[in-house]
Design a protein around this nucleic acid. Sequence first.
DNA 1: TTAAATAGTACTAAACTAGTCCTAATTTTT
DNA 2: AAAAATTAGGACTAGTTTAGTACTATTTAA
Lengths: 150, 150
Amino acid sequence: MLRISKLTDYAIVILSYMARNNAVQHAATEISSVTGIKLPTVSKLLKTLSKADIVRSMRGSKGGYFLARESETITVANVISAIEGPIALTECSLSVDHCEQSSSCEIRGNWLVINRAVKTALESVTLADMIKPVSGIPVEIRLPVENILA
Amino acid sequence: MLRISKLTDYAIVILSYMARNNAVQHAATEISSVTGIKLPTVSKLLKTLSKADIVRSMRGSKGGYFLARESETITVANVISAIEGPIALTECSLSVDHCEQSSSCEIRGNWLVINRAVKTALESVTLADMIKPVSGIPVEIRLPVENILA
DNA sequence: TTAAATAGTACTAAACTAGTCCTAATTTTT
DNA sequence: AAAAATTAGGACTAGTTTAGTACTATTTAA
């Protein structure tokens, strides 16, 4: 189904909330109660996002989390990478060596290109975009598809 | 990691082979020995692809499979959908009802847009493209990212 | 010193994916 | 008519991944 994990989805929800209330620090408990995502899950995600330097933390009483950067510079691709690891549609997009048939695999190069197209799409959307209301009218997306493959 | 399943990857390999040798029918056994993918898996995939009308089949001795359409009209998105179901990055891209917090979910609309961008990228690559050799020079992909979100 | 918070790690359970197998149906060949 | 080759369909198993939980350590403010 080509889907992102639930955890990534949660992460986007959490980060969107933080982006909307960027001024202050947020404790995991607060984020949990606001978003409805259970506390252990929220904690786990924030720890992971912290390692990826998407959020920063303050320990101790009155501690909490806040965005490490401006919401305009945090992309959906960043979040996916932080939670799920590198964006790669196929194993062979990650490494040549893994593939049993690497020598006979003429498809690999094209997967790389497709992968890059998807990645670019995901890199093009930031947290700041995500918290904007969507216009009622369906948006026309134009990708110059003729150029995607050489 | 946002990846397609192994089975989808196999399907692309199988279909690429069929596209390169479009004239004739191919038995599952033949495809298995050529691609190195085990027979039960090849059979399973071809059956699934048949239901999706990506390949057609002839039963009986001398039977086999062949592409249902020109390779130019079979997209990577078609194949993913056939094997994994609809392309939807999040549950909520599929249906509003599933989401527990659908009323408070302002993010949904934007996911739809992202999803559509990814889908468009995958729809833009056909089987015919996949069997073309990749140019040695990395291809510049240009997505007019400003237009993706309204 | 105590309370409130994050850090790190390990574990469990549930869900999904991949792979296998068996039987039925169909078509060609002998 | 019988046999051989092939696809059709479905059920099942094992393995892997994902999601969720729990526990302990560390840090900071009051």
